[in-house]
Design a protein around this nucleic acid. Structure first.
Lengths: 135, 135
DNA sequence: AATTCGCTCATACTTTAGTATGAAATTATC
DNA sequence: GATAATTTCATACTAAAGTATGAGCGAATT
Protein backbone atom coordinates (compact mmCIF):
# COMPACT_ATOMS: atom_id res chain seq x y z
CA UNK A 1 0.00 0.00 0.00
CA UNK A 2 2.45 2.58 1.29
CA UNK A 3 5.27 1.43 -0.97
CA UNK A 4 3.02 1.82 -4.00
CA UNK A 5 2.33 5.42 -3.03
CA UNK A 6 6.02 6.09 -2.49
CA UNK A 7 6.83 4.51 -5.82
CA UNK A 8 4.23 6.70 -7.54
CA UNK A 9 5.56 9.82 -5.87
CA UNK A 10 9.15 9.02 -6.78
CA UNK A 11 8.17 8.41 -10.39
CA UNK A 12 6.28 11.71 -10.46
CA UNK A 13 9.32 13.51 -9.04
CA UNK A 14 11.57 11.90 -11.64
CA UNK A 15 9.27 12.87 -14.52
CA UNK A 16 8.94 16.38 -13.18
CA UNK A 17 12.70 16.70 -12.98
CA UNK A 18 13.14 15.36 -16.50
CA UNK A 19 10.56 17.71 -17.99
CA UNK A 20 12.08 20.62 -16.17
CA UNK A 21 15.48 19.65 -17.52
CA UNK A 22 14.13 19.25 -21.05
CA UNK A 23 12.99 22.88 -20.96
CA UNK A 24 16.05 24.29 -19.25
CA UNK A 25 19.07 22.42 -20.51
CA UNK A 26 19.00 24.13 -23.94
CA UNK A 27 19.69 27.39 -22.15
CA UNK A 28 22.05 26.19 -19.46
CA UNK A 29 23.99 23.19 -20.66
CA UNK A 30 26.74 23.57 -18.15
CA UNK A 31 24.40 23.07 -15.20
CA UNK A 32 23.81 19.45 -16.09
CA UNK A 33 26.14 18.27 -13.35
CA UNK A 34 23.98 20.08 -10.82
CA UNK A 35 20.82 18.32 -12.01
CA UNK A 36 22.58 14.98 -12.02
CA UNK A 37 23.73 15.66 -8.50
CA UNK A 38 20.21 16.53 -7.39
CA UNK A 39 18.85 13.33 -8.91
CA UNK A 40 21.64 11.38 -7.24
CA UNK A 41 20.89 12.87 -3.82
CA UNK A 42 17.13 12.45 -4.15
CA UNK A 43 17.41 8.81 -5.08
CA UNK A 44 20.07 8.12 -2.50
CA UNK A 45 17.62 9.34 0.13
CA UNK A 46 14.89 7.30 -1.50
CA UNK A 47 17.08 4.20 -1.38
CA UNK A 48 17.77 4.75 2.29
CA UNK A 49 14.08 5.31 2.92
CA UNK A 50 13.18 2.07 1.15
CA UNK A 51 15.67 0.17 3.30
CA UNK A 52 14.15 1.75 6.40
CA UNK A 53 10.55 0.94 5.49
CA UNK A 54 11.61 -2.59 4.57
CA UNK A 55 12.81 -3.20 8.11
CA UNK A 56 9.68 -1.61 9.53
CA UNK A 57 7.65 -4.22 7.66
CA UNK A 58 9.81 -6.99 9.08
CA UNK A 59 9.02 -5.76 12.57
CA UNK A 60 5.29 -5.62 11.86
CA UNK A 61 5.29 -9.20 10.62
CA UNK A 62 7.16 -10.32 13.74
CA UNK A 63 4.63 -8.55 15.95
CA UNK A 64 1.74 -10.24 14.18
CA UNK A 65 3.36 -13.60 14.75
CA UNK A 66 3.52 -12.88 18.44
CA UNK A 67 -0.19 -12.14 18.67
CA UNK A 68 -1.12 -15.31 16.82
CA UNK A 69 1.05 -17.47 19.05
CA UNK A 70 -0.17 -15.67 22.15
CA UNK A 71 -3.75 -16.56 21.43
CA UNK A 72 -2.98 -20.10 20.32
CA UNK A 73 -1.40 -21.13 23.59
CA UNK A 74 -4.43 -19.87 25.46
CA UNK A 75 -2.87 -18.03 28.37
CA UNK A 76 -5.44 -15.93 30.21
CA UNK A 77 -4.92 -12.22 30.84
CA UNK A 78 -3.83 -12.73 34.43
CA UNK A 79 -1.49 -15.53 33.47
CA UNK A 80 0.09 -13.21 30.92
CA UNK A 81 0.43 -10.50 33.58
CA UNK A 82 2.19 -12.89 35.93
CA UNK A 83 4.38 -14.29 33.16
CA UNK A 84 5.44 -10.80 32.14
CA UNK A 85 6.51 -9.78 35.63
CA UNK A 86 8.08 -13.20 36.12
CA UNK A 87 10.09 -12.65 32.96
CA UNK A 88 11.39 -9.42 34.40
CA UNK A 89 12.97 -11.24 37.31
CA UNK A 90 10.44 -10.55 40.05
CA UNK A 91 9.69 -13.03 42.84
CA UNK A 92 6.19 -14.29 43.52
CA UNK A 93 5.88 -11.95 46.49
CA UNK A 94 6.94 -8.95 44.40
CA UNK A 95 4.47 -9.89 41.67
CA UNK A 96 1.73 -10.22 44.29
CA UNK A 97 2.53 -6.75 45.62
CA UNK A 98 2.55 -5.20 42.16
CA UNK A 99 -0.78 -6.74 41.16
CA UNK A 100 -2.38 -6.29 44.61
CA UNK A 101 -2.98 -10.02 44.93
CA UNK A 102 -2.03 -12.65 47.49
CA UNK A 103 1.03 -14.77 46.90
CA UNK A 104 -1.26 -17.79 46.79
CA UNK A 105 -2.98 -16.40 43.71
CA UNK A 106 0.35 -15.82 42.03
CA UNK A 107 1.38 -19.38 42.75
CA UNK A 108 -1.88 -20.66 41.30
CA UNK A 109 -1.41 -18.67 38.11
CA UNK A 110 2.22 -19.77 37.96
CA UNK A 111 1.40 -23.45 38.18
CA UNK A 112 -1.33 -23.09 35.58
CA UNK A 113 0.81 -21.23 33.09
CA UNK A 114 3.64 -23.72 33.62
CA UNK A 115 1.24 -26.46 32.58
CA UNK A 116 0.09 -24.53 29.53
CA UNK A 117 3.64 -23.70 28.48
CA UNK A 118 4.75 -27.25 29.30
CA UNK A 119 7.63 -26.16 31.55
CA UNK A 120 8.83 -27.04 35.04
CA UNK A 121 9.86 -23.67 36.50
CA UNK A 122 9.97 -19.92 35.95
CA UNK A 123 13.34 -19.96 34.24
CA UNK A 124 12.07 -22.33 31.60
CA UNK A 125 8.88 -20.28 31.35
CA UNK A 126 10.98 -17.21 30.65
CA UNK A 127 12.85 -19.05 27.91
CA UNK A 128 9.63 -20.40 26.42
CA UNK A 129 8.06 -16.95 26.44
CA UNK A 130 11.11 -15.62 24.64
CA UNK A 131 11.04 -18.50 22.20
CA UNK A 132 7.37 -17.96 21.40
CA UNK A 133 8.02 -14.20 21.27
CA UNK A 134 5.16 -13.50 23.67
CA UNK A 135 6.70 -10.17 24.69
CA UNK B 1 37.74 3.87 6.99
CA UNK B 2 35.44 1.79 4.81
CA UNK B 3 32.91 4.59 4.39
CA UNK B 4 35.67 6.88 3.11
CA UNK B 5 36.59 4.34 0.47
CA UNK B 6 32.95 3.91 -0.53
CA UNK B 7 32.54 7.68 -0.71
CA UNK B 8 35.59 7.94 -2.95
CA UNK B 9 34.37 5.19 -5.24
CA UNK B 10 30.91 6.72 -5.52
CA UNK B 11 32.42 10.11 -6.36
CA UNK B 12 34.61 8.49 -8.99
CA UNK B 13 31.60 6.72 -10.49
CA UNK B 14 29.65 9.97 -10.56
CA UNK B 15 32.48 11.86 -12.24
CA UNK B 16 32.95 9.07 -14.75
CA UNK B 17 29.26 9.12 -15.59
CA UNK B 18 29.27 12.89 -15.97
CA UNK B 19 32.30 12.89 -18.26
CA UNK B 20 30.82 10.11 -20.31
CA UNK B 21 27.61 12.09 -20.59
CA UNK B 22 29.48 15.26 -21.54
CA UNK B 23 30.98 13.47 -24.53
CA UNK B 24 27.85 11.63 -25.57
CA UNK B 25 24.89 13.89 -25.02
CA UNK B 26 25.76 16.14 -27.97
CA UNK B 27 25.15 13.16 -30.23
CA UNK B 28 22.24 11.58 -28.45
CA UNK B 29 20.20 14.20 -26.65
CA UNK B 30 17.08 12.08 -26.41
CA UNK B 31 18.81 9.44 -24.30
CA UNK B 32 19.16 11.80 -21.36
CA UNK B 33 16.29 10.12 -19.54
CA UNK B 34 18.20 6.86 -19.71
CA UNK B 35 21.29 8.38 -18.11
CA UNK B 36 19.21 10.07 -15.44
CA UNK B 37 17.59 6.74 -14.74
CA UNK B 38 20.94 5.03 -14.47
CA UNK B 39 22.19 7.66 -12.03
CA UNK B 40 18.98 7.32 -10.03
CA UNK B 41 19.30 3.54 -9.79
CA UNK B 42 22.99 3.66 -8.94
CA UNK B 43 22.50 6.12 -6.12
CA UNK B 44 19.40 4.39 -4.87
CA UNK B 45 21.47 1.27 -4.46
CA UNK B 46 24.24 3.33 -2.87
CA UNK B 47 21.78 4.83 -0.38
CA UNK B 48 20.52 1.40 0.53
CA UNK B 49 24.08 0.18 0.88
CA UNK B 50 24.98 3.07 3.19
CA UNK B 51 21.99 2.29 5.39
CA UNK B 52 23.06 -1.35 5.49
CA UNK B 53 26.69 -0.62 6.42
CA UNK B 54 25.53 1.88 9.04
CA UNK B 55 23.66 -0.86 10.84
CA UNK B 56 26.57 -3.24 10.48
CA UNK B 57 28.72 -0.74 12.37
CA UNK B 58 26.13 -0.51 15.11
CA UNK B 59 26.32 -4.27 15.53
CA UNK B 60 30.09 -4.28 15.66
CA UNK B 61 30.11 -1.64 18.39
CA UNK B 62 27.58 -3.63 20.38
CA UNK B 63 29.69 -6.78 20.06
CA UNK B 64 32.78 -4.98 21.29
CA UNK B 65 30.84 -3.80 24.33
CA UNK B 66 29.98 -7.40 25.11
CA UNK B 67 33.57 -8.51 25.20
CA UNK B 68 34.62 -5.61 27.42
CA UNK B 69 31.84 -6.23 29.89
CA UNK B 70 32.47 -9.96 29.88
CA UNK B 71 36.02 -9.52 30.99
CA UNK B 72 35.28 -6.68 33.40
CA UNK B 73 32.79 -8.59 35.51
CA UNK B 74 35.36 -11.26 36.20
CA UNK B 75 33.32 -14.43 36.25
CA UNK B 76 35.50 -17.51 36.55
CA UNK B 77 35.32 -20.36 34.04
CA UNK B 78 33.24 -22.56 36.31
CA UNK B 79 30.92 -19.72 37.15
CA UNK B 80 30.43 -19.12 33.43
CA UNK B 81 29.73 -22.83 32.93
CA UNK B 82 27.09 -22.80 35.64
CA UNK B 83 25.58 -19.56 34.39
CA UNK B 84 25.32 -20.93 30.89
CA UNK B 85 23.45 -24.05 31.95
CA UNK B 86 21.38 -21.99 34.36
CA UNK B 87 20.41 -19.73 31.47
CA UNK B 88 19.18 -22.77 29.59
CA UNK B 89 16.64 -23.52 32.28
CA UNK B 90 18.38 -26.34 34.13
CA UNK B 91 18.00 -26.87 37.89
CA UNK B 92 21.00 -27.01 40.20
CA UNK B 93 20.75 -30.80 40.36
CA UNK B 94 20.70 -31.10 36.56
CA UNK B 95 23.69 -28.78 36.27
CA UNK B 96 25.54 -30.84 38.86
CA UNK B 97 24.85 -34.01 36.86
CA UNK B 98 25.99 -32.45 33.61
CA UNK B 99 29.25 -31.13 35.06
CA UNK B 100 29.87 -34.21 37.25
CA UNK B 101 29.87 -32.08 40.40
CA UNK B 102 27.95 -32.15 43.64
CA UNK B 103 24.92 -29.92 44.03
CA UNK B 104 26.77 -28.15 46.84
CA UNK B 105 29.41 -26.97 44.41
CA UNK B 106 26.78 -25.68 42.03
CA UNK B 107 25.17 -23.75 44.85
CA UNK B 108 28.50 -22.23 45.82
CA UNK B 109 29.18 -21.13 42.25
CA UNK B 110 25.63 -19.85 41.98
CA UNK B 111 25.88 -17.69 45.07
CA UNK B 112 29.23 -16.33 43.97
CA UNK B 113 28.12 -15.42 40.50
CA UNK B 114 24.97 -13.83 41.90
CA UNK B 115 27.18 -11.55 43.96
CA UNK B 116 29.35 -10.69 40.99
CA UNK B 117 26.37 -9.99 38.77
CA UNK B 118 24.64 -8.14 41.61
CA UNK B 119 21.42 -10.14 41.35
CA UNK B 120 19.17 -12.02 43.78
CA UNK B 121 18.23 -15.17 41.89
CA UNK B 122 18.76 -17.20 38.74
CA UNK B 123 16.01 -15.49 36.80
CA UNK B 124 17.65 -12.12 37.29
CA UNK B 125 21.02 -13.68 36.51
CA UNK B 126 19.60 -14.91 33.22
CA UNK B 127 18.34 -11.42 32.39
CA UNK B 128 21.65 -9.87 33.38
CA UNK B 129 23.58 -12.32 31.26
CA UNK B 130 21.31 -11.49 28.35
CA UNK B 131 21.68 -7.78 29.02
CA UNK B 132 25.46 -8.01 29.14
CA UNK B 133 25.28 -10.35 26.16
CA UNK B 134 27.53 -12.86 27.81
CA UNK B 135 26.27 -15.67 25.55
C1' DA C 1 -31.46 -22.02 35.09
C1' DA C 2 -27.41 -24.55 34.63
C1' DT C 3 -22.80 -24.76 33.22
C1' DT C 4 -18.36 -23.36 32.05
C1' DC C 5 -14.40 -20.44 32.68
C1' DG C 6 -11.45 -17.20 34.79
C1' DC C 7 -9.97 -15.02 39.05
C1' DT C 8 -9.27 -15.10 43.70
C1' DC C 9 -7.72 -17.00 48.16
C1' DA C 10 -6.50 -20.56 51.34
C1' DT C 11 -4.11 -24.68 53.66
C1' DA C 12 -0.79 -28.10 53.65
C1' DC C 13 2.91 -30.06 51.86
C1' DT C 14 7.34 -31.20 49.12
C1' DT C 15 10.99 -29.61 46.58
C1' DT C 16 14.30 -26.44 45.11
C1' DA C 17 16.96 -22.34 45.70
C1' DG C 18 19.92 -19.56 48.10
C1' DT C 19 23.07 -18.03 52.22
C1' DA C 20 26.70 -18.59 55.62
C1' DT C 21 30.63 -20.75 56.91
C1' DG C 22 34.47 -23.67 56.82
C1' DA C 23 37.90 -26.49 54.77
C1' DA C 24 40.94 -28.96 51.59
C1' DA C 25 43.17 -29.48 47.03
C1' DT C 26 44.57 -27.38 42.80
C1' DT C 27 46.23 -23.84 39.91
C1' DA C 28 47.97 -19.23 38.72
C1' DT C 29 50.75 -15.58 39.66
C1' DC C 30 54.30 -12.92 41.55
C1' DG D 1 58.61 -20.96 46.96
C1' DA D 2 55.03 -18.14 48.89
C1' DT D 3 50.70 -16.04 48.07
C1' DA D 4 46.32 -15.52 46.04
C1' DA D 5 42.52 -17.18 43.49
C1' DT D 6 39.89 -21.06 41.90
C1' DT D 7 37.59 -25.25 42.46
C1' DT D 8 35.58 -28.59 45.07
C1' DC D 9 32.76 -30.47 48.82
C1' DA D 10 30.29 -30.35 53.13
C1' DT D 11 26.82 -29.06 56.96
C1' DA D 12 23.19 -26.38 58.53
C1' DC D 13 20.00 -23.28 57.91
C1' DT D 14 16.34 -19.95 55.85
C1' DA D 15 13.66 -18.51 52.07
C1' DA D 16 11.33 -19.16 48.03
C1' DA D 17 9.19 -21.94 44.60
C1' DG D 18 6.11 -25.24 43.17
C1' DT D 19 2.15 -28.89 43.67
C1' DA D 20 -2.34 -30.58 45.14
C1' DT D 21 -6.67 -29.63 46.47
C1' DG D 22 -10.72 -27.19 47.54
C1' DA D 23 -13.81 -23.40 47.54
C1' DG D 24 -16.27 -18.97 46.67
C1' DC D 25 -17.45 -15.46 43.29
C1' DG D 26 -18.79 -13.20 38.94
C1' DA D 27 -19.35 -13.06 34.01
C1' DA D 28 -20.37 -15.20 29.87
C1' DT D 29 -22.39 -19.04 27.31
C1' DT D 30 -25.72 -22.59 26.15
Amino acid sequence: MKSTIVYGISMAVLLFLLKWLEVKYLIMDNLFELYAGIIAIVFMVLGAWFMYSLQQKKQEIAEKKQIIQNTEIGLSQRELDVLELMSQGYSNQQIADKLFLSIHTIKTHSSNLFLKLDVKNRTQALLKAKELEIF
